[in-house]
Design a protein around this nucleic acid. Structure first.
Lengths: 152, 152
DNA sequence: ACTATAAGTTCCTATTTGGAACTGAGTCAA
DNA sequence: TTGACTCAGTTCCAAATAGGAACTTATAGT
């Protein structure tokens, strides 16, 4: 399988969905910014202070996430007008991806500090244990149960 | 919630698992390199040509993935010795994360080109439909079914 | 001896990021 | 009504990272 080389800044039209995901969430800091917005930290200075990211990079990333349709910049006060960045449905649909990633990091990149947050099931109030299954068969998706095939 | 600012190159000890994940897979190109290795493209020149990544960056990323315990550099021939990068169990355990991400990208970043590969369930040979559930309750994990709480 | 291959490394240039200072719209307190 | 403060950026320069091309090392094949 030979294919034409990719350019990092032109990944959005790639045929591979992983590459297209990178075009949106692949830049430095972007996923942490998205995490903050999804966890309720939606204002410029809040995010800047929490991450320690330089301000113009944060401004650029927020613009890109807005353009990509993951964040909605909307005023939270008038006089002076101030905006916050609210996750769209596309961003909310990213939550399962992030939770599975959190599960992976907890399993493989453990550290002897407690996480600053915990995720619970809304109904049982028990910590979640994310597991990926195939919606059609109910079988767990692991390296052993799937098969990747080339198209063409 | 105030916290100390992060430094991009010192994320591996962060309390937040998303940040720790970034310390391993957050650099430019890294996730695409991991995708290639997981999909069977494990040799330096193969990966370099497929991605169009500059060679010293690829060398640096492969070293970092090896150090992080995701890839195992092992010889595939002697005379001259040549190495390939084989995914470890930690990398294989990342497959569900990647598949959920692929599902998200297919839903939200569609493009009018067919994917260069397709993922099937090994037993039914049907395309997978990844879904994230809570292993304890069986409930689907979405923005509506979970609850994020601060620790401390 | 000459050509080729794979996996790096080196070097120089271009792009991206970090960090600090500056701006603008407006509030609040003296 | 001046002065200090807040939040959301923007601007500027220096430092770090990435792109691209050439070079290296070990070997095989012709």
């Amino acid at each position: 399988m030979l294919r034409t080389p990719m350019k990092w800044n032109d990944l959005s039209e790639e045929a591979c969905p992983v590459a297209r995901a990178m075009s949106v969430i692949g830049d430095r800091w972007t996923l942490l910014i998205l995490r903050d917005c999804l966890f309720g930290f939606r204002r410029f200075d809040d995010i800047q202070r929490r991450l320690g990211i330089t301000r113009h990079v944060l401004a650029e990333r927020l613009k890109k996430l807005e353009t990509a349709g993951l964040l909605d910049r909307r005023p939270y006060q008038e006089r002076p007008v101030r905006h916050e960045y609210v996750p769209t449905q596309a961003a909310k649909d990213f939550i399962p991806v992030m939770q599975v990633m959190i599960g992976w990091a907890n399993d493989h990149l453990a550290v002897n500090k407690p996480s600053p947050y915990k995720t619970l099931m809304r109904d049982t109030r028990e910590p979640i244990a994310p597991k990926v299954i195939d919606a059609n068969t109910g079988t767990e998706i692991t390296s052993k149960t799937i098969w990747v095939e080339e198209n063409d």
